[in-house]
């Protein structure tokens, strides 16, 4: 266990070092930060003076060594736009992203397990076929389109008047297809509860939860179908295995077989995939946060790019790298708990 953690920590350091070098190497391609910091009519002379002052005219190697020297002391530089330490900026934005990810994960968990198991137990049922059909459609719709459609339907509202309103059935159809709207379409609202440090949570107020609904559904929509299909496939395989047959023959309750014995083994690959999918989740939070103006790290990162806020870009990439290593470590640990035959360090038993 200890050896495993040491190994992982050294990996994390290596990952972050490589990321910082790459991020530094590409910064020339990210544009001129000065452009965002001064007005158009500021003379070239003034710009040079500011560049000198900020050390942007030093050779890249000198800039990197200066950065690395500060970084080992926990100082990842100062954001050009926010004017404060990049780590502080990231910590301020991280809770919003985490809450969005948690919200989406809960939705995925609550829907994918029952639907997946049901579709595996009753593959021929109409409802299963319906779920599978919907999930195929869901997986192929880009997340920003889902988001825009959700906003139109549930924030702005749609009035349908296709059917004759003077007939009873027409009216019913019209009102069945029309939506009221009214759900918040941007941001996190102003009813946030302060938990600790920079964490202001939207989980404890009605307003906060309402703001979370649409972004969380959008983010979940891209991964929910994947998990439903995965659980269904794994479950069907497990249901064919000897120990399930034996349990059936023994006369155990079907509920107990399905949800205790079979599901447990189904979850193994699901956890692995889930760990890998966290990366995808990070990528999709950027899209979701942009559409919903969700003030998380994804939106912050995208704006940092358009502003060429290089210190913030570098710091974000390093933090995301760290998150990847940590989540993969946790996944491996859970893996060990679920299946004791798995050896962490991969050495012989």
């Amino acid at each position: 266990m200890l050896a495993f953690l040491v190994q992982r920590i050294s990996q994390a350091i290596l990952v972050m070092f490589v990321i910082s070098v790459i991020a530094f190497a590409i910064q020339d391609g990210l544009g001129d930060p000065l452009q965002q910091m001064v007005g158009m009519s500021v003379s070239e002379e003034e710009r040079e003076a500011i560049r000198d002052e900020m050390g942007l005219n030093d050779p890249l190697v000198v800039q990197y060594l200066r950065f690395a020297g500060n970084a080992v002391q926990g100082d990842l530089g100062i954001s050009y736009f926010y004017g404060k330490p990049t780590l502080d900026v990231i910590l301020e934005h991280l809770p919003a992203t985490l809450e969005l990810a948690i919200g989406a994960s809960l939705i995925i968990l609550f829907f994918s397990v029952p639907i997946g198991v049901y579709a595996a137990i009753r593959p021929q049922a109409l409802l299963s076929k319906f779920f599978m059909g919907v999930s195929t459609v869901g997986i192929s719709i880009p997340v920003f389109l889902t988001a825009i459609v959700l906003i139109q339907l549930f924030s702005i509202g749609v009035t349908v008047d296709l059917f004759p309103a003077d007939t009873g059935w027409g009216q019913n159809l019209n009102s069945a297809l029309s939506t009221e709207g009214g759900l918040p379409s941007y941001g996190r609202g102003d009813e946030l509860t302060h938990l600790f440090g920079t964490w202001h949570s939207g989980f404890f107020s009605q307003g906060g939860l309402l703001h979370l609904i649409l972004p969380a559904i959008s983010l979940a929509s891209i991964m929910l179908p994947l998990f439903i299909r995965l659980i269904r496939a794994e479950m069907m395989e497990v249901l064919q295995s000897d120990y399930v047959r034996y349990a059936r023959a023994k006369g155990l309750q079907p509920g107990r077989i399905n949800f205790l014995h079979a599901l447990k083994n189904t979850m193994l690959p699901v956890i692995t995939v889930g760990g890998v999918q966290i990366g995808t989740m990070v990528a999709y939070t950027i899209l979701t946060e942009t559409v919903f103006q969700w003030p998380g790290v994804g939106l912050m990162f995208l704006e940092a790019i358009t502003r060429s806020d290089i210190p913030l870009i570098v710091a974000y990439l390093m933090v995301v790298g760290l998150i990847f290593v940590i989540t993969n470590t946790i996944v491996d640990l859970i893996y060990g708990l679920v299946n004791p035959t798995v050896k962490l360090t991969g050495k012989k038993a």
Binding site: I148, S155, I156, G182, L183, P184, S185, Y186, T290, Q293
Partner: peptide, 16 residues
């Protein structure tokens, strides 16, 4: 601040 054009307009239309 709402950078995305579509979101800004939606915020107005939805009454946000």
């Amino acid at each position: 601040p709402i950078k995305e054009n579509n979101t800004r307009v939606s915020a107005l239309l939805s009454g946000g």
